[in-house]
Design a protein around this nucleic acid. Sequence first.
DNA 1: AATGAATGAGGTTTCATTCAT
DNA 2: CATGAATGAAACCTCATTCAT
Lengths: 193, 193, 193, 193
Amino acid sequence: MKREKPKYKQIIDAAVIVIADNGYHQAQVSKIAKQAGVADGTIYLYFKNKEDILISVFREKMAVFIESLQEVNQENTTAAEKLEFMITNHFRVLSNDKYLARVTQLELRQSNRDIRLKINAVLKEYLEQLDTILEEGVKAGEFDANMDLRLARQLIFGTVDEVTTSWVMKDHKFDLTAQAPKVYQLLLNGIKG
Amino acid sequence: MKREKPKYKQIIDAAVIVIADNGYHQAQVSKIAKQAGVADGTIYLYFKNKEDILISVFREKMAVFIESLQEVNQENTTAAEKLEFMITNHFRVLSNDKYLARVTQLELRQSNRDIRLKINAVLKEYLEQLDTILEEGVKAGEFDANMDLRLARQLIFGTVDEVTTSWVMKDHKFDLTAQAPKVYQLLLNGIKG
Amino acid sequence: MKREKPKYKQIIDAAVIVIADNGYHQAQVSKIAKQAGVADGTIYLYFKNKEDILISVFREKMAVFIESLQEVNQENTTAAEKLEFMITNHFRVLSNDKYLARVTQLELRQSNRDIRLKINAVLKEYLEQLDTILEEGVKAGEFDANMDLRLARQLIFGTVDEVTTSWVMKDHKFDLTAQAPKVYQLLLNGIKG
Amino acid sequence: MKREKPKYKQIIDAAVIVIADNGYHQAQVSKIAKQAGVADGTIYLYFKNKEDILISVFREKMAVFIESLQEVNQENTTAAEKLEFMITNHFRVLSNDKYLARVTQLELRQSNRDIRLKINAVLKEYLEQLDTILEEGVKAGEFDANMDLRLARQLIFGTVDEVTTSWVMKDHKFDLTAQAPKVYQLLLNGIKG
DNA sequence: AATGAATGAGGTTTCATTCAT
DNA sequence: CATGAATGAAACCTCATTCAT
């Protein structure tokens, strides 16, 4: 008996590939089912509807980022080191899964407002981890005590996101992970005390 | 007899309103035609297809940003002052036209890959103006000579864009233009020599 | 230029034929469109949705019955004569349009509760005309003053409907209009004073 | 160990409840299985297919009517008394099982032509019992010798059915069994010699 | 130049039935 | 006998675009 991945995971992974290959609006349920090697109807044993597939893709994949951040946030390192890890990790994960990168940076953003709101809810956890780092850095005197925390968060996330999107749109023509130290330095300059 | 705006402009403006009010996916050509006060078929006398409307919306509205930057780039001010103006101007224009802000920050991004690529082509002019400022600043010793120019551009555009998007998604709950000096300071810290 | 029936009527008539030929559950919108000689989408310029087509079929066709009853109710005849006319007319109209008979007696009754309720609302007008006849007959001493009006209505409608349905289910094997005098006599016996 | 009803009966009863509660078109096999406390697949050990369940429901429940009529038809009473019993019994049985009444009067009639034909075959036995009463009544001089037997049957069944359906559609707002004597009188008037 | 009625392709989801365990 | 996960066919409706007037 062949041991299969549980179908839920199987379908999520198929969705990432289909969306990356065909684009958001051409990612029909039947294509995802075919890629996953299951019948169309089987999808609906594991997901409420198509929207549920898309949000689940994002949630499952973001979990990697969020968990690694939670871990690093519990370690005894400086806030600056944590920030550096966050950036490096972000770039590394997406570098290693170009399908995922295309899906999160380009395709999923084409979804309608409902899905976008649910995706943002997932993203919020990630941003809260970032906030934790920033608060800690301010308390430790590493980061500028007068800076606007929300702006700092937007500075960091906006930059990391823009660099990643740029990398995807330019068909990965530069080495994304190699940008991490430089991005870290620019951002640290911006916020350090 | 009332002198009417030329129909081309009329349709562009109608598109912005319809997209802002209904969202990208609910902005049907017939709605735009109705809002513009013309027949559906008339749209196709001025635009090749729907995609052409959307890109034209972006191009026409971006022109405001680009022109003002071209002007300021020809003035005798420091690169830092130019950067500050760029940020302030960006926030001010979108603050003054909340319809436009919603359309550019949220709605148009839901379009498919083809339209996104064409929108990026329009954006490129804006980013080139930004590059001009950065190069000038490096040459004048205002900005760090060792920094990666592309990263600096992504830092600045990514941050400004993220702050604006955040402001739109939070229903303009904070004063966007008031962020300009703080954003400028954070970014300048990042890149100054 | 060929003068066409207005499309609305054209589609209604096509629906009757398609439903009669294929049965309620096999009467797809595309079949109706094809039969009407229009595109699928054209249907939706004239009807809100499929349900709207079905109810409209019933409403338009019942109008024939209701109007003729309204006319006869305004004439100077006895209630018994009006009743006889009603029965004769009912059988004659359905005898002359076997498609319609199949649709109203068998097919439309397979619809779901929502449609059935709306169909019943249309039917109500017909039954009210019948009530008018009965009340008039009681007042004139033609019909039994002690009878239960609602039951009398159910007696008449139930019988006429059952005879018609029987005729349809037996593939029109007997002459429906020929039943009218006998049915009238049975019913009159039941309710006469 | 609790002695269970045989599964066949269990499933029939579950079907009546599910159809009455959810309506014909929302009575999925899986719902019936759940209500019956068995697995979906188990249904198919006792019934050939869904159609078979529905017809069996009707057949099993009609048996009550048919048996009681067979009994009364063997008694030494007048045809008129038998007719009265038939009407009273019909109303009483359905009054006592409102689930069943909804299912037979409203829901099962939404089924397609095939099922309807098979249901009619079951109904035929009932109508034959009614014919026996009528023939006996004619022979005994109780009923009009000149009347059309088929019409008389349709008069009686159509009226009883219409009264019952009306009662179900009006949510049992009147006392159905209380109608029996009045209905009997109306019908007897119609057919008595 | 302007109209707007007509077109027709294309996709999500349900659910009766099967069959390996 | 019993299970229940898996199957896959099938249809309503929308909307960008055309073209006769």
